[in-house]
Computed example of a mutant assay.
Amino acid sequence: MHLRNRHGSTVDPVPFVVVVGLSFMVLLSFGPLYGQALGLSLEIAIAASAALFAVATVAAFYRQVWTFRPEAVGAVPSAVRAERLFHLIPILAALIVALAVPLVVG
Protein backbone atom coordinates (compact mmCIF):
# COMPACT_ATOMS: atom_id res chain seq x y z
CA MET A 1 0.00 0.00 0.00
CA HIS A 2 1.50 3.30 -1.08
CA LEU A 3 -0.03 6.27 0.69
CA ARG A 4 0.89 9.83 -0.20
CA ASN A 5 0.32 13.05 1.71
CA ARG A 6 -1.04 16.24 0.18
CA HIS A 7 2.44 17.18 -1.06
CA GLY A 8 2.95 13.86 -2.84
CA SER A 9 5.51 12.44 -0.39
CA THR A 10 5.25 8.76 0.49
CA VAL A 11 3.87 8.08 3.99
CA ASP A 12 4.32 4.95 6.10
CA PRO A 13 0.91 3.24 6.15
CA VAL A 14 1.45 1.21 9.36
CA PRO A 15 0.24 3.82 11.92
CA PHE A 16 -2.86 4.53 9.84
CA VAL A 17 -3.67 0.83 9.43
CA VAL A 18 -3.19 0.19 13.16
CA VAL A 19 -5.45 3.07 14.20
CA VAL A 20 -8.15 2.07 11.71
CA GLY A 21 -7.95 -1.58 12.79
CA LEU A 22 -8.19 -0.71 16.48
CA SER A 23 -11.09 1.67 15.90
CA PHE A 24 -12.88 -1.02 13.88
CA MET A 25 -12.34 -3.52 16.66
CA VAL A 26 -13.50 -1.23 19.47
CA LEU A 27 -16.39 0.49 17.71
CA LEU A 28 -17.94 -2.60 16.19
CA SER A 29 -17.36 -4.72 19.29
CA PHE A 30 -18.61 -2.34 21.96
CA GLY A 31 -20.75 0.05 19.89
CA PRO A 32 -23.76 -2.22 19.38
CA LEU A 33 -23.66 -3.24 23.06
CA TYR A 34 -23.73 0.37 24.18
CA GLY A 35 -26.40 1.18 21.60
CA GLN A 36 -28.63 -1.57 22.91
CA ALA A 37 -27.93 -0.49 26.49
CA LEU A 38 -29.17 2.97 25.49
CA GLY A 39 -32.35 1.49 24.02
CA LEU A 40 -31.51 1.39 20.31
CA SER A 41 -32.37 -1.58 18.15
CA LEU A 42 -29.51 -3.82 17.06
CA GLU A 43 -29.68 -2.65 13.43
CA ILE A 44 -29.53 1.03 14.38
CA ALA A 45 -26.73 0.41 16.88
CA ILE A 46 -24.65 -1.39 14.23
CA ALA A 47 -25.34 1.36 11.69
CA ALA A 48 -24.32 4.04 14.21
CA SER A 49 -21.14 2.11 15.04
CA ALA A 50 -20.32 1.78 11.35
CA ALA A 51 -20.90 5.52 10.86
CA LEU A 52 -18.60 6.32 13.80
CA PHE A 53 -16.01 3.97 12.30
CA ALA A 54 -16.20 5.83 8.99
CA VAL A 55 -15.70 9.15 10.80
CA ALA A 56 -12.73 7.70 12.74
CA THR A 57 -11.20 6.39 9.51
CA VAL A 58 -11.49 9.76 7.77
CA ALA A 59 -10.04 11.53 10.82
CA ALA A 60 -7.13 9.08 11.02
CA PHE A 61 -6.42 9.47 7.31
CA TYR A 62 -6.44 13.24 7.61
CA ARG A 63 -4.21 13.25 10.69
CA GLN A 64 -1.76 10.47 9.84
CA VAL A 65 -1.56 10.57 6.07
CA TRP A 66 -2.90 13.72 4.47
CA THR A 67 -1.26 16.29 6.80
CA PHE A 68 1.79 14.18 7.74
CA ARG A 69 5.17 15.90 7.31
CA PRO A 70 8.03 13.43 6.77
CA GLU A 71 10.62 16.11 7.52
CA ALA A 72 9.30 16.43 11.10
CA VAL A 73 9.81 12.76 12.02
CA GLY A 74 12.96 13.34 14.06
CA ALA A 75 11.72 16.58 15.66
CA VAL A 76 10.38 14.87 18.79
CA PRO A 77 13.07 13.04 20.80
CA SER A 78 12.52 9.35 21.46
CA ALA A 79 12.52 9.91 25.24
CA VAL A 80 9.53 12.25 24.93
CA ARG A 81 7.70 9.76 22.69
CA ALA A 82 8.35 6.94 25.19
CA GLU A 83 7.11 9.11 28.05
CA ARG A 84 3.90 9.85 26.15
CA LEU A 85 3.44 6.15 25.49
CA PHE A 86 3.83 5.29 29.18
CA HIS A 87 1.30 8.00 30.06
CA LEU A 88 -1.18 6.46 27.63
CA ILE A 89 -1.01 2.97 29.16
CA PRO A 90 -3.13 3.76 32.28
CA ILE A 91 -5.54 5.79 30.15
CA LEU A 92 -6.07 2.86 27.78
CA ALA A 93 -6.45 0.44 30.71
CA ALA A 94 -9.13 2.69 32.24
CA LEU A 95 -10.87 2.92 28.86
CA ILE A 96 -11.01 -0.87 28.55
CA VAL A 97 -12.47 -1.17 32.06
CA ALA A 98 -15.01 1.56 31.27
CA LEU A 99 -16.02 -0.19 28.06
CA ALA A 100 -16.62 -3.43 29.94
CA VAL A 101 -18.99 -1.86 32.51
CA PRO A 102 -22.22 -2.48 30.50
CA LEU A 103 -21.22 -6.12 30.12
CA VAL A 104 -20.86 -6.54 33.89
CA VAL A 105 -23.79 -4.38 35.03
CA GLY A 106 -26.29 -5.28 32.30
Rank of each mutant, 00 (worst) to 15 (best):
E43F: 08
E43Y: 09
E43V: 07
E43P: 00
E43M: 12
E43I: 07
I44W: 12
I44E: 07
I44T: 13
I44F: 10
A45Y: 08
A45W: 11
A45I: 03
I46F: 10
I46W: 14
A48N: 07
A48C: 08
A48S: 07
S49N: 02
A50W: 00
A51W: 04
A51M: 07
L52W: 05
L52I: 00
L52M: 13
L52T: 00
F53C: 02
F53S: 02
F53P: 01
A54Y: 03
A54S: 10
V55N: 00
A56H: 05
A56E: 05
T57F: 12
T57Y: 04
V58E: 06
V58I: 12
A59K: 05
A60K: 02
A60D: 06
A60W: 02
A60R: 02
F61C: 01
F61L: 09
F61V: 01
F61Y: 15
Y62D: 12
R63Q: 11
R63C: 03
R63T: 12
R63V: 03
V65G: 06
V65S: 09
W66L: 05
W66V: 05
W66Y: 14
W66D: 06
W66Q: 05
T67C: 04
T67S: 08
T67V: 08
T67G: 01
F68R: 11
F68G: 00
R69L: 03
R69K: 11
P70F: 07
P70M: 07
P70D: 03
E71T: 05
E71W: 11
V73E: 15
V73S: 09
G74Q: 14
G74S: 13
G74D: 14
V76N: 02
P77A: 07
P77H: 08
S78A: 12
A79Y: 08
A79R: 15
A79Q: 12
V80G: 00
V80S: 08
V80D: 06
R81T: 04
R81Y: 03
A82R: 15
A82V: 11
E83G: 10
R84A: 14
R84C: 06
R84G: 15
R84T: 04
R84P: 00
L85T: 11
F86M: 12
F86E: 07
F86Q: 13
H87F: 11
H87W: 14
H87S: 09
H87Y: 12
H87A: 13
L88R: 12
L88F: 13
L88D: 12
L88Q: 13
